[in-house]
């Protein structure tokens, strides 16, 4: 089998992973299965990042989304819900018809815009150096301020999480 065909087959595999995982994530009423579907869809998107010339971003996708965000949501499910409630949520979903119509309408509008738009590449598009060292240098030079800002945002998020959860606990102890 030719190398190019193998690459195309893998691409289709990633697309199927995204579709199946996202479908599982939004339709499954068992929350744990929904998280697993989310992780599967994120793996698929990481595969697409490989095709977009960015293996570093694919690794970060797996590390941050699959490794951190999904695990945190799993913790949220396991700590925050009793088994009885988890069973209670596994009833039928609400307003399925409305949400189906609304999301299909959105899909139609998005695809219509996609169909009618003319995308013209800028001169020199896709020719640049996609390597990790370029990315690191531009993070340090040109996007240094944004990099620092996002560090501050993450710090504030950590403090906020601790404050929100700790406050409720203290009130519970005072009762």
């Amino acid at each position: 089998m030719a190398y190019g065909t193998l690459i195309e087959i893998l691409f289709y595999l990633f697309l199927i992973m995204i579709a199946f995982g996202a479908w599982q994530a939004v339709t499954s009423q068992v929350l744990m299965r929904a998280v697993m579907g989310l992780a599967m869809a994120m793996f698929g998107v990481a595969g697409l990042y490989l095709y977009l010339n960015s293996p570093f971003l694919a690794l970060m996708q797996i590390l941050i989304y699959v490794g951190a965000v999904c695990i945190m949501i799993v913790f949220g499910i396991m700590v925050g819900y009793t088994p009885k409630e988890l069973a209670a949520y596994a009833i039928e979903p609400r307003n399925t018809v409305v949400s189906l119509v609304a999301s299909l309408l959105t899909l139609g509008v998005v695809y219509l815009g996609l169909y009618r738009a003319q995308w013209v590449p800028a001169p020199g598009a896709g020719q640049g150096d996609f390597s990790l060292s370029t990315l690191g240098l531009s993070l340090m030079n040109r996007y240094g301020l944004a990099f620092e800002l996002i560090s501050v945002v993450l710090l504030i998020a950590i403090i906020g999480v601790v404050a929100i959860t700790w406050n409720g606990k203290r009130r519970g102890l005072n009762k």
Binding site: A25, V26, L38, Y89, S99, A102, L104, T106
Partner: peptide, 24 residues
């Protein structure tokens, strides 16, 4: 992915499910 997330955001019955759809 946007439309999958939108669908999940509207039809999930729990806050965690809505968070999952937002991530999508």
């Amino acid at each position: 992915l946007l439309c999958f997330g939108l669908y999940g955001l509207m039809q999930h019955r729990s806050l965690i499910g809505m968070l999952i759809s937002t991530e999508l």
